[in-house]
Write a protein that binds this DNA or RNA. Structure first.
Lengths: 299, 299
DNA sequence: TAAAAATACTCCATAGGTATTTTAT
DNA sequence: ATAAAATACCTATGGAGTATTTTTA
């Protein structure tokens, strides 16, 4: 049974007239009769009762009409869908995201995708650290990653989305809070709360501290900025965090800029080899600074 | 897009090898390549990535593989279903049934249909009287009718299912209840409960009474036997009913046979013109006395 | 008898086959 | 160097067209 048979049958069943159906199909009546006859022979089932005055459907014909319409509609839909996927206008992008980009940047990304690529679905893998995302990309478990450089792998493309300065978070009553100018070196000897050692922000912080001539005393690690700040609020230590716009409702915390603040980037990483139009389209959403630059968030 | 394209594509996508796919399709490799190429051109979408070492699916190809399998399965299913309907092995039979055949005969009919024609679905139109069913048949609102003859129309085929004698139902305390032999004529002058005037049983009763030389005094009509017997139990009158096997839990009723009891048939009626195999098959279930004869019920 | 579907036949488009070339590993 | 897909070309099946006959309301 070819789709031709279905198209022809539906036309005849709807017109209840071979001549008119043939016209509608832009063909002559005899070959149409032949094809219908062939269909009936293949199905070993009479579909139409023909008299010279009228064409009527048998119960089997009624069933076929209904089902054939469905199948033809399916075919049209599939053709459309396949083309959309082929053009990269439709499909699922698996995106790995750093912990708390979830709160400020991710919603913007989701919104941008929703409005400018309606056929796209984002499969979000949250709470990942940069090295985890690198591996996940390499092992094809995710397609793109919203991460903080640097990345080790050479096989990744990076699209910089923005830059944050690390700012100092410290308890309100802390002696350093009254100083109006602070340098990194002033923090030597303080107890620090930090992100996990594997995280990009932690690496940047440690490098910067080493350059400033001290080795920070990390008294506590926290994966999420909200947790980290709550430790600061509790007076356990001070911390450097990527310019947070909210204190997560915590009391007793103040933020101070550093004159020599280390910078952290935020970037979209993807595999260099990945030629899929969907990924290219998704990345192109962010080429033209859709998300205002320096709109970084927390690690 | 022809189903050929789908079959070919599924074969190649599954084998991931044009040569093996061609073998599986019992054809040569070049025309297969051509057809796939044609499909890709029609969809304006690349479906496969070919190298000389391996064939891989694009995301669009993955989608098409999945959907094409579904459509091909649908087609097979449709072909099967159409053939079943064509052979009359599957479909819906709209059956009109006399009121209380529902309780004893209908379940047997449903059971016979279920076991011997699993593809058949019965659409039961209950609580109908013979003349209503005749009209419903003529107007093609039902396909068959389980009714009590006689029927007026010449355009119906009747298949007799069984025969009942009308038995006398009367209050326990009724004077006639002590007589050991009763004839119809003995009932002259009694108050009667009867089925509606249009019903077949009512007609048969009135004819029999006329022959016996009296015109019954009908004090109450009831459509359903259960209702009718409750009137008898209440002492409102006596009644002739088709051999009921249950008293519907009513107290104070007795049944007496009449030596000259009128007989009522039960039959399956169908349109003479109806050549649909489904109807023929359904009726043939009852040709061979599947339902034991004289298993009649109530009107 | 007239309108419509079925036949009979003819033709040609194209699915499918054969031979060969190209390509990527 | 080789396996596999693509290309080139040919063949022939069968889909579609034209002319005509058959059917039935």
């Amino acid at each position: 049974m070819e789709t031709r048979h279905l198209r022809y049958f539906v036309a005849v069943a709807e017109e209840k007239h071979f001549g008119r159906a043939a016209e509608r199909l832009h063909m002559a009546q005899p070959p149409l009769s032949q094809q219908i006859k062939q269909l009936e022979e293949q199905l070993k089932t009479q579909l139409l009762v023909r008299t010279t005055r009228k064409v009527e459907l048998t119960p089997a014909g009624e069933l076929l009409l209904d089902r054939a319409r469905g199948i033809l509609a399916d075919l049209d839909q599939v053709a459309q869908d396949v083309q959309l996927v082929g053009q990269g206008a439709s499909g699922v992008v698996r995106i790995g995201v750093a912990g708390s980009t979830m709160y400020r940047l991710m919603p913007r990304i989701v919104e941008a995708a929703r409005t400018r690529m309606p056929g796209l679905r984002l499969n979000v893998h949250g709470e990942m650290l940069t090295p985890q995302m690198e591996r996940a990309l390499e092992e094809n478990r995710i397609d793109v990653a919203l991460l903080r450089p640097p990345v080790r792998s050479e096989a990744l493309d990076l699209l910089r989305l923005g830059q944050d300065e690390l700012v100092l978070a410290l308890p309100e009553q802390h002696p350093l809070a009254i100083r109006d100018e602070l340098r990194l070196a002033d923090l030597a000897g303080q107890p620090f709360i930090s992100y996990p050692a594997e995280s990009a922000v932690s690496g940047i912080f440690l490098d910067a501290a080493r350059s400033a001539g001290f080795r920070p005393d990390i008294v506590q690690e926290a994966r999420e900025t909200s947790t980290l700040l709550s430790f600061v609020a509790a007076g356990m230590g001070i911390a450097l965090v990527p310019t947070p716009r909210s204190t997560f409702g915590l009391q007793g915390i103040v933020f101070r800029a550093l004159t020599d603040a280390p910078e952290v980037d935020l970037a979209l990483a993807s595999r260099k080899g990945d030629a899929r139009p969907l990924i290219a389209n998704f990345l192109s959403l962010f080429d033209a600074q859709t998300l205002t630059p320096s709109e970084g968030t927390t690690p």
